[in-house]
């Protein structure tokens, strides 16, 4: 647990980055399934700064993890071979894409078709980014992380947390008035998939780590320490999904969406504590 708490900046980064980037998936779904007035669109474009700020805070937190942030430009040196270089590169590309989308959208020069194309690219990039965040932890000398669960968990955070943040922003922009059932169903499906990915991967990951052992510790004692955290995370994620479902039934409830988002963020944060606490080397 001490080990996990030492990674607090990374816990913040891996919580906020998937949530912030995932919001763009819901924006993409909204543009593909609904029509907005110019006024709604303008408001939404202005409020698109919210997921960007969430992302920026996440990136900022990741800088706090570095002993010498001034050398940060060197991190691309081993692009291709270092999973960390790859993660940061994909993250920067995502941030640039989302930022450019926001600026062009704000300038009012984006036709509906161009907007659809652009947001689809940003939405796909969000999933790719989440995959690379998870993959950064996959090294053969850390068998407790060297599993696809590391990736699937983060994709789950992106879909659940992102769908709540995206819906909250859409709601605040007044874009959910009379939102079609089809759109609401899609968003709920995304959130449900996210919750399933997150919960199932976490539980399977937890079980897998319990079966490991190295020359310092047995996996069972590692998992015993995080069991209560795992239960909290799973329960909060399911409750967050419930709030999102409730909000989607009503169609426009931003307050339910906001509560759901906070619960999901806390669930993801705790899931990251569990993840970092489950680091077990093949050796020492």
């Amino acid at each position: 647990m001490e080990q996990a708490m030492a990674e607090l900046p990374l816990i913040f980064f891996t919580t906020l980055a998937p949530i912030g980037s995932g919001a763009f998936i819901v924006f993409a779904m909204a543009f593909f399934t609904m029509r907005f007035s110019d006024e709604q669109m303008k408001k939404l474009d202005r409020l698109t700064v919210i997921p960007l700020v969430v992302l920026a805070v996440g990136f900022g937190a990741s800088f706090l993890h570095l002993a010498t942030p001034a050398h940060a430009m060197n991190v691309f040196t081993n692009l291709g071979s270092s999973p960390l270089s790859n993660e940061i590169f994909v993250g920067v590309v995502f941030f640039a894409l989302a930022g450019i989308y926001w600026i062009v959208a704000l300038s009012g020069k984006l036709s509906l078709n161009a907007r659809k194309g652009f947001i689809a690219v940003v939405a796909i990039a969000a999933i790719v980014f989440s995959c690379f965040i998870g993959a950064a932890y996959m090294m053969d000398t850390i068998p407790s992380w060297d599993t696809p669960y590391s990736i699937l968990e983060v994709v789950g955070f992106c879909l659940l947390g992102g769908s709540l943040l995206g819906m909250l922003v859409l709601g605040l922009a007044g874009c959910l008035d009379g939102a079609q059932r089809g759109f609401r169903k899609i968003v709920f499906a995304i959130a449900l998939l996210g919750t399933l990915l997150m919960v199932c991967s976490l539980v399977a990951h937890f079980t897998m780590v319990g079966s490991l052992s190295n020359s310092l510790v047995d996996g069972t004692s590692v998992t015993a320490e995080v069991t209560s955290y795992l239960v909290c995370s799973v329960v909060l994620a399911i409750v967050a999904l419930g709030f999102e479902g409730g909000a989607l039934l009503k169609g426009t409830s931003t307050s339910l969406m906001a509560i759901g988002l906070v619960l999901a963020a806390v669930a993801i944060f705790i899931a990251r504590i569990v993840f970092y606490a489950m680091q077990m080397s093949v050796g020492l």
Binding site: L66, A67, T68, H71, A72, N74, V75, T77, Q279
Partner: peptide, 10 residues
């Protein structure tokens, strides 16, 4: 060059 990310340690 080192940024102090701790990946080597992990």
């Amino acid at each position: 060059r080192c940024v102090g990310c701790g990946y080597c340690h992990m």
